[in-house]
Amino acid sequence: MSALICGSFAYDTIMVFHDRFRNHILPDQVHILNVSFLVPDLRREFGGCAGNIAYNLKLLGGDGLAMGTVGTDFQPYAEWMDRQGMSREHIRIIDGQYTAQAYITTDQDDNQITAFHPGAMNSSHENRVSDADGITLGLVSPDGRQGMIEHAQQFAEAGIPFIFDPGQGMPMFDGEDLMRFAEQATWLAFNDYEARLMQERTGKSLDELATLVEAIIVTRGGEGSRIHHDGRITEIPAAPAASLEDPTGCGDAYRAGLLHGLQNDMDWDTTGRIASLMGAIKIEQAGTQNHHFTLDEFRARFRDTFNYDFG
Results as ranks from 00 to 15, higher is better:
R180Y: 05
L4S: 00
E79H: 15
D28I: 13
A102T: 14
V39T: 11
Q146Y: 09
G279D: 00
A241C: 04
T13A: 05
S205G: 11
E79M: 15
T105H: 07
M67T: 00
F173L: 01
A185C: 06
H229G: 04
S243L: 13
Y308C: 12
T271Q: 10
Y55C: 07
G279H: 05
N264K: 15
L206S: 01
P171A: 03
A54E: 11
D73F: 05
P142S: 04
D177F: 04
Q168W: 07
D109S: 13
T305I: 02
G119P: 05
I283D: 07
N52P: 12
F74M: 09
M81R: 12
R273T: 06
H117D: 14
W268S: 01
Y308E: 15
E45G: 00
M148K: 07
D269E: 13
H125D: 08
L258K: 01
N52W: 01
Q97G: 06
H24N: 14
A300C: 11
L38S: 11
D82I: 14
M170W: 10
I281E: 04
H24D: 13
F74S: 00
D265K: 15
G249Y: 08
R22L: 13
V30M: 11
I104G: 08
D82M: 14
H229C: 07
N264Y: 09
P237H: 08
D252K: 12
L209V: 02
G224R: 11
S141C: 06
E157C: 11
L137Q: 08
Y98N: 15
I236L: 02
D82Q: 15
L137N: 10
I104W: 06
L262Y: 06
M172T: 08
F155E: 01
A66G: 10
S2Q: 15
D107P: 13
G134R: 04
R299D: 01
A300H: 15
L42E: 13
D304R: 15
Q84I: 12
M67Q: 03
F298L: 01
L4K: 02
M15N: 13
Y103M: 15
T219Y: 03
R83W: 08
D82F: 12
A239R: 09
G221H: 10
D95N: 13
T69V: 10
I25W: 05
F302R: 12
H292I: 12
L4C: 01
Q153A: 15
T271Y: 01
I274F: 00
H117F: 12
L33H: 10
I53E: 03
T202Y: 04
N56T: 12
M81V: 09
Y103I: 15
A182R: 02
R92F: 00
Y193K: 12
D41S: 10
T270Q: 10
D207T: 11
A132K: 07
H260V: 09
L65G: 02
L212S: 08
T105Q: 08
D304P: 11
G167W: 00
Q154Y: 03
F181K: 03
F37H: 02
M148S: 04
S123Q: 14
S225G: 06
F164T: 05
S130I: 14
V218L: 00
I216K: 02
T136C: 11
Q108N: 14
P171F: 06
G169D: 03
L59M: 07
I281W: 09
M148F: 02
Q168I: 05
T219R: 01
